[in-house]
Every structure is written in structure tokens, then in C-alpha cells.
């Protein structure tokens, strides 16, 4: 199970009263687009408490076609990279500590885990 873009839009819409769900949808799509555009243009993204996105360069190398074994020149390229920020890292890791190392159903609401 995962949170999708449409569920994210629904949740934000439920949490606030000023904007219509349609406006929230447009806003979320605009934000995601802006982030993708930034990376596609070689830029970085820095969100305090969440993390930063940047591009990492992958050097050109000689690869192989796994079927034929023939070598192929692979050009250098950029790949997106995400480094979680401190708050995100800590909150995610704390959730593991709260579970006491046990996996719980991921659809249970956090914060209600009794200390063992």
C-alpha cells in the first residue's frame, strides 16, 4: 500500500477549508511539476525539514548487452538524487523505534503504539 498523488490531494483538501478540492489538485500538480522542471533544468531543490534533491553525474562506461554479450558505449548521464533532511530522517526512524522492531500493519495510524 502506498500514498498516491490523488490521495495526497484528498488529504490536503480535507485539512483545509479555504480552497476547493479542484484548487488543491491544481496546486499539488503545480508543485510536483515545478520540482520536476527544476531537476530537469539541472537545478537543486532544498526543502528544510524534508530533504534536498540534486543531480548526480554517472560517468560514461562500457556496458554489455546481456543477451548478446556485445559491448555498448554508455554515455555519461545525470540521475536525480534525494538526501532526506534531519526532521524526516528522525521521524521515520523514530517510527521504527516505537514499533519496537516489530512490523505492524502499515495502515494503522501512527502515534498510538503502546510502549512495551
Amino acid at each position: 500500500m502506498a500514498l498516491t498523488k490523488s490521495e495526497l490531494i484528498e488529504r490536503i483538501a480535507e485539512r483545509q477549508s479555504q480552497l476547493s478540492p479542484k484548487d488543491v489538485e491544481l496546486a499539488v500538480k503545480t508543485l510536483i511539476e515545478e520540482m520536476a522542471d527544476s531537476l530537469a533544468g539541472g537545478g537543486r531543490i532544498e526543502i528544510r525539514g524534508f530533504g534536498s534533491f540534486s543531480l548526480h553525474f554517472r560517468a560514461p562506461r562500457v556496458g554489455r548487452n546481456p543477451k548478446t554479450g556485445a559491448s555498448v558505449e554508455l554515455h555519461g548521464k545525470y540521475v536525480p538524487h534525494f538526501k532526506p533532511g534531519k526532521e524526516l530522517r528522525e521521524r521515520v526512524n523514530d517510527s521504527l523505534q516505537l514499533e519496537g522492531g516489530e512490523h505492524q500493519d502499515s495502515d494503522s495510524e501512527g502515534g498510538q503504539v503502546a510502549a512495551s
Partner: peptide, 14 residues
């Protein structure tokens, strides 16, 4: 909302 989902051990797909 993304952080909240992740801290609830639910991945996020955008």
C-alpha cells in the same frame, strides 16, 4: 502529508 505518510511506514508514489 508526505512526511506523515512515511513516518506511518506508508510509501508515497507521485
Amino acid at each position: 502529508e508526505i512526511r506523515h505518510s512515511l513516518e506511518s511506514n506508508v510509501p508515497v508514489k507521485l
